[in-house]
Simulated scan of single mutants.
Amino acid sequence: MGDMARRISVIDLFCGVGGLSHGLMQAGLNVVAGFDIDPRCRYPFEKNIAAPFIEQDIRTVSKEQLEGLWKPGSIRLLAGCAPCQPFSPYRRGVDTTSEPQWSLLGEFARLAKESRPELVTMENVPRIMSSTIFREFASTLEEIGYGVSFKSCYGPEYGLPQERRRLVLIASRIGHINVPGGERKPGEFVTVRDAIYSLPVVHQGKTHDLDGMHKARALSPLNLKRIKASSPGGTWHDWPTELLSPCHARPSGATFRNVYARMEWDKPSPTITTMSYNFGTGRFGHPEQDRAITLREAAILQGFPKDYEFVRPGEPVEFNPIGRMIGNAVPPAIARAVGSALIAAVK
């Protein structure tokens, strides 16, 4: 790793399990700390990123705190992904403006304004681009002297084996830096096969002996029949009538084709959500084995390495909290491209 890369020191706000930090580290940046309010994220962040995890509400973080963490004399990067639940496409039609997460992007702007780092990067769901809070965030940065670039990034173009789109913003006080485009074209995308085919077979309701994260949720007898009747890329329309549930018969249910479905080997996966270990909540059936994907497979499809640690050795691996940590994580592949663009610009 070059001296130039190490000269950029990173504080990751809303760091979670370290997806954004991991991608920036892969590019060669020096992550000095992560902030988050979820205590479960401490172990994965500190273990994989090897930087201190600070369990603190962003509303109480001060400029002095940040200044004590960045390496003296470094180019300072303030990075983060403010929780995006209010803007999620899965919340269609719900008025979310009263939710506390709305103010978190404002807190990010406050810290940028108070500490004036040379670089800022923010990642979120693309839908946030049409919101007032995002426009205010971008214009605040412009008003205090940053050149701002943002765009929607399509994961497979960056080597992510998943059809996820993310908004990425880069703000710089040391010359304008564009958000990088992905370099892969269709035909070069990383597929589900590339990502998880080599993993050992696991049966529904079972855990692999050598990896507690390679754990598949148990299926009910009815859902086991349903997955056996499902083919990769197909829908529940392919099932015999006796396997359908009452909601499938209603007109409102007929539009939800991508639940109770299998992934396809030779395409990127669908977006990995916080419930991707659950066959009934999306196209989360394994392409071939009669089960939903495991937590380890979800993490790999989200772009984490096969050996990324999410729980302390010996601690129980629980679907709900770990599924949430994986689904909420920033895909490292996109963060790595951002880190490489920052290094190239700084050089």
Rank of each mutant, 00 (worst) to 15 (best):
P305T: 06
G323H: 00
A195W: 07
K151N: 09
L29V: 12
A329I: 00
R217N: 11
Y146R: 13
Q26C: 11
I133D: 05
K306W: 03
D57F: 08
H248N: 15
M1G: 14
V120L: 09
H203T: 03
N328I: 01
D57A: 13
L119M: 12
V317P: 01
G73Q: 04
G147L: 07
R92P: 00
I11L: 11
M25E: 09
F134P: 06
Q162F: 03
H214N: 07
P156C: 07
R184Q: 10
P156G: 03
E297P: 05
S230I: 09
H176K: 15
G285M: 10
N48D: 04
N124D: 13
P313R: 10
P100N: 09
E55F: 06
E242R: 13
Q85P: 05
L105V: 15
N124M: 07
E157A: 12
A195R: 10
E118K: 10
I75E: 09
G2Y: 05
I75C: 14
Q56Y: 02
F284Y: 14
Y308K: 09
L295P: 00
S131W: 05
H203I: 00
P313W: 06
Q302K: 15
Q204M: 04
L111P: 00
M25P: 00
G205I: 07
G68W: 06
C81L: 11
T255P: 00
G93A: 11
A299I: 10
